[in-house]
Design a protein around this nucleic acid. Structure first.
Lengths: 144, 144
DNA sequence: TCTCATATCGGAATCATTCCAGTTTGGAAA
DNA sequence: TTTCCAAACTGGAATGATTCCGATATGAGA
């Protein structure tokens, strides 16, 4: 498990040529302290406010986006466009092209076994969702 | 691969005590004909309009929700609240409780191998996302 | 055919997120 | 230490998907 600490993140800020600001430090604090809750922008906004008096919601959004793009954190909800629907109800991997948005189904021969999850964690799986993001064959060929 | 045909879906409508309406038939047509594109509400709305003159966007949303809840189709973007962020950059399965919304990380011993995906489909994987939806230990204990 | 629970309609409301124009500031260079 | 400017920040407005709501229409059982 690779989890960034507060110091890691500050170091990565510098490596990426990003400025150290009170707002960013407060956001990093909020991210690290609430790591197990997978916090959203609103929670981070509220937590950051407690630490640094002056933080705007716009800044929180811009910062989280910046951090995601710089690889400091991972944004979990990429598809901010609209919900999408699938008539295929079997377990499969969605190959989602980051450039054209095309979604290709990839049926894995040996799916992950929910039974193992239940036995080890006590979590009962009712739906699975597996997504690999990247670039499809067509987009790899096409220039730009 | 289990993909519903048009007839399957109409049959399931009846089984679930849902009425057969021109709007629903048009939406089913749109879903089935565009199955490989994983269409969103807007695309379905436009396609359904071509078939049944009179369809409103509200109806499309309501119908897709109804279909999802009845198990006819699968809604792919569950978390319609806000983006969420994770400081853990390693590949892992997010166990998301459908009742309390808690997200628990489950680190699988042997992760799926992106190389196999590339070789078979030509798709280059840059990010992976694996989610299993269900119920966590705590919620299973708790009544209602 | 009658009846009414269920569907549909469209317009307003909601809510996360982004945009924008103006102001502030971290930190490199002098 | 001071100067300077690209990068950050701010708050309010705009966007866009989705939901809500009150009124109207209709499928299908009696």
């Amino acid at each position: 498990m690779r989890t960034n600490t507060k110091e890691d993140l500050i170091g990565q800020l510098k490596e990426n040529g990003l400025k150290i600001t009170p707002q960013r430090l407060a956001i990093i604090d909020a991210l690290v302290e609430n790591r197990y809750e997978h916090p959203g922008a609103t929670l981070i906004f509220n937590e950051a406010r407690k630490k640094a008096g002056r933080v705007s919601l716009s800044t929180v959004y811009a910062t989280l986006k910046e951090f995601s793009e710089s690889g400091l954190i991972r944004q979990m909800e990429f598809d901010r466009l609209e919900n999408r629907y699938d008539v295929d109800l079997s377990d499969h991997v969605n190959l989602i092209c980051k450039r054209c948005g095309k979604v290709v189904d990839y049926h894995i021969p040996a799916p992950l076994e929910p039974k193992n999850i239940v036995r080890k964690s006590g979590f009962v799986v009712t739906d699975t969702r597996i997504e690999f993001h990247g670039y499809c064959r067509d987009c790899l060929k096409r220039p730009d």
